Simulated assay, not measured.
Amino acid sequence: MLAELRARARDALEPAHWDYFEGGAGDERTLRANEEAFARVRLVPRVLRATGPRDLRTTLLGTELRAPILVAPTAFHRLAHRDGELATAAGAAAAGAGYVVSMAATTPVEAIAAVAGPWWFQLYLQPDRDFTAALVRRVEAAGCRALVVSVDSPVFGRRERDHRNGFHDLPAGLCCENLRDAAGAVRDIAMDAGLGWAAIGWLRGITGLPIVLKGVLHPADAELAVEHGVSGLIVSNHGGRQLDGAVATADALPAVAKAVGGRLPVLVDGGVRRGADILAALALGADAVLVGRPVLWGLAAGGADGVRLVLDSLAEDLDRVLALAGVRTPAAVPPDLVVSP
Score class of each variant (00 low, 15 high):
L267W: 05
D169W: 11
L224Y: 07
V226I: 10
D162W: 00
G215M: 04
D221Y: 10
G215Y: 00
R164K: 13
S231V: 13
L195Q: 15
G270C: 05
V212H: 03
P210V: 12
P219V: 10
G240C: 06
D269M: 01
R159C: 02
A255C: 03
E223F: 08
L284M: 11
C176H: 09
V272P: 01
D244W: 02
G173K: 13
I200H: 03
A220D: 12
E160R: 08
A182C: 10
E177A: 14
R158V: 11
A198C: 14
D251Q: 08
A286H: 05
A183K: 11
G157N: 04
H168W: 15
G184M: 14
G232N: 09
P154F: 06
G184V: 14
G205S: 10
R241Q: 05
L284K: 05
A172P: 07
G196S: 15
G173L: 11
G270A: 07
G271A: 04
P210C: 08
V272Q: 03
F167R: 03
E177Q: 13
V230W: 06
G205K: 03
L203Y: 01
K214E: 04
L243N: 00
V235E: 06
V226K: 06
G184H: 12
A225D: 02
G157T: 03
V268K: 02
A276L: 10
P265W: 02
T249I: 05
K214S: 06
D192Y: 10
V266E: 02
G166C: 14
R180K: 13
G173Q: 10
E177T: 15
V216A: 00
H168M: 11
A288P: 06
T249N: 00
